[in-house]
C-alpha cells in the first residue's frame, strides 16, 4: 500500500509537470490544428538555459526567469521563421509537420555540439530547496512539492489568461474560425506568436522543474517527454486547457504505478497505451469538443 501511495504521489508531481508541457501542445493545436513536434526540443532548451545562467552564478530564480523569456522567444522565432511562411502559402499539413520535426532536430543537435553544451549528461541544480516531507513511511521530496505547487499556480494563471482576458478571447476566436477572427479586427499573427511564447515559457518552467527533480539534463531529454506530454494533451482532449491537466495527471500516475509493479520498461509506452484506449473509446479525448465536418 505504501509503495502504491508513493508511486501515486510521484505520478501526481510528474503529471503536473507533464501538464505544463502538454499545455504548449494543446494551445498551439487549438489555434493552428498542428502537432508542434519542436515543443519537446524547446523544453530541453529551456532546461539548458537555466543550467547556463546558473553556471554564470545568477541564482536559480533569476536563471529560471531569464530562461523562460528566452525559451518563449525561441518558440516564437520557430513559428515566425519556419511555420508562418508555410501558413501564408497554405501548404499541406504534412509539410508543416515535417518542418516541426526538422526544427526539433536543429535545436536538439545544436545543444549537443561539443562547444555549445556537449552531448553528455550535465548535473542540474537541485530544486530540493527545503526539507523533505515525511508522512508515515512515505517521503515526499521538496522538489516534488515545488513541482506540484508551481504547476498548479501556473495552470491557474493560464486558465485565467485564456478564459478571462482579451488575448484569451482572441485565441478562442481564432480557434473557432481564423478568417472570421481576422475580419473582426484581431491581429491573428500577433496572437499566434503570443500562443507560441506562452507554450515555450511553460515548457522552460517544466524543464527547470523536471531537471531539478532528476538532477541531470541531456540534449535528448525532450524527445521522450515531449511525446508523452503530447499523448497527455490528446488524452485530455487537445485544445482544451483543463484537459491537458487531467491528461498529464492520468499519464503521470499510471506510468509511475505501472513502473512500480510491471518493471521500468513499461514506463514510457504506458502513455501511449492510455492514448490509444482513449482515442478508440472517445476519439476527441476526455474533454475534447466534438469536431463537426462541414460540407
Amino acid at each position: 500500500m505504501q509503495t502504491f501511495l508513493g508511486a501515486v504521489i510521484n505520478g501526481l508531481a510528474l503529471g503536473m509537470a507533464y501538464a505544463l508541457i502538454a499545455v504548449g501542445y494543446s494551445m498551439v493545436f487549438g489555434v493552428l490544428r498542428l502537432i508542434n513536434f519542436s515543443h519537446g526540443a524547446v523544453y530541453a532548451f529551456g532546461a539548458y538555459m537555466v543550467f547556463f545562467f546558473v553556471s554564470l552564478k545568477l541564482g536559480l530564480l533569476a536563471s529560471i526567469l531569464l530562461s523562460v523569456v528566452i525559451s518563449g522567444l525561441l518558440a516564437m522565432l520557430v513559428d515566425k521563421v519556419a511555420l508562418e511562411p508555410l501558413r501564408k502559402k497554405k501548404s499541406i499539413p504534412i509539410a508543416t509537420l515535417i518542418t516541426t520535426i526538422g526544427v526539433s532536430f536543429i535545436i536538439q543537435n545544436v545543444l549537443s555540439i561539443e562547444y555549445v553544451f556537449g552531448s553528455e549528461r550535465r548535473a542540474f541544480p537541485s530544486t530540493n530547496l527545503f526539507a523533505n516531507l515525511s508522512i508515515g513511511n512515505i517521503t515526499i521530496q521538496s522538489s516534488q512539492i515545488i513541482m506540484l505547487i508551481v504547476a498548479v499556480l501556473l495552470l491557474g494563471v493560464l486558465t485565467f489568461l485564456v478564459q478571462g482576458t482579451k488575448v484569451g478571447l482572441a485565441m478562442r476566436a481564432i480557434e473557432q474560425n481564423r478568417k472570421a477572427a481576422h475580419l473582426a479586427g484581431i491581429n491573428v499573427d500577433l496572437v499566434i506568436s503570443f500562443t507560441f511564447f506562452i507554450g515555450g515559457a511553460c515548457a522552460a518552467i517544466a524543464g527547470a522543474l523536471i531537471g531539478g527533480y532528476y538532477g541531470v539534463i541531456n540534449p535528448g531529454m525532450g524527445s521522450t517527454i515531449g511525446l508523452k506530454a503530447f499523448a497527455a494533451a490528446v488524452v485530455g482532449g487537445i485544445g482544451v486547457l483543463h484537459g491537458a491537466v487531467v491528461g498529464g495527471l492520468v499519464v503521470g500516475v499510471v506510468e509511475c504505478v505501472a513502473a512500480q509493479y510491471l518493471g521500468s520498461n513499461v514506463r514510457d509506452p504506458m502513455a501511449f497505451v492510455i492514448l490509444i484506449l482513449i482515442l478508440i473509446l472517445k476519439p476527441n479525448g476526455l474533454f475534447g469538443k466534438k469536431g463537426i465536418t462541414k460540407v
Binding site: 493545436f29 490544428r33 502537432i35 499539413p93 509537420l97 511525446l227 503530447f230 499523448a231 490528446v234 518493471g263 520498461n265 513499461v266 514510457d268 509506452p269 502513455a271 501511449f272 497505451v273 492514448l275 490509444i276 482515442l279 478508440i280 476519439p283 476527441n284
Partner: peptide, 28 residues
C-alpha cells in the same frame, strides 16, 4: 480499424502510439 473512427491528425497520433507499443512488446 481505428481509421474508420479517426481521421487526420488523430489517426497519425494513433500510429505514433502504435510504434511505441510495438517497442514495449519487443522489450518486454
Amino acid at each position: 480499424l481505428p481509421s474508420l473512427r479517426l481521421s487526420g491528425t488523430y489517426l497519425s497520433i494513433v500510429t505514433l502510439g502504435f510504434c511505441e507499443i510495438v517497442q514495449m512488446v519487443l522489450k518486454q
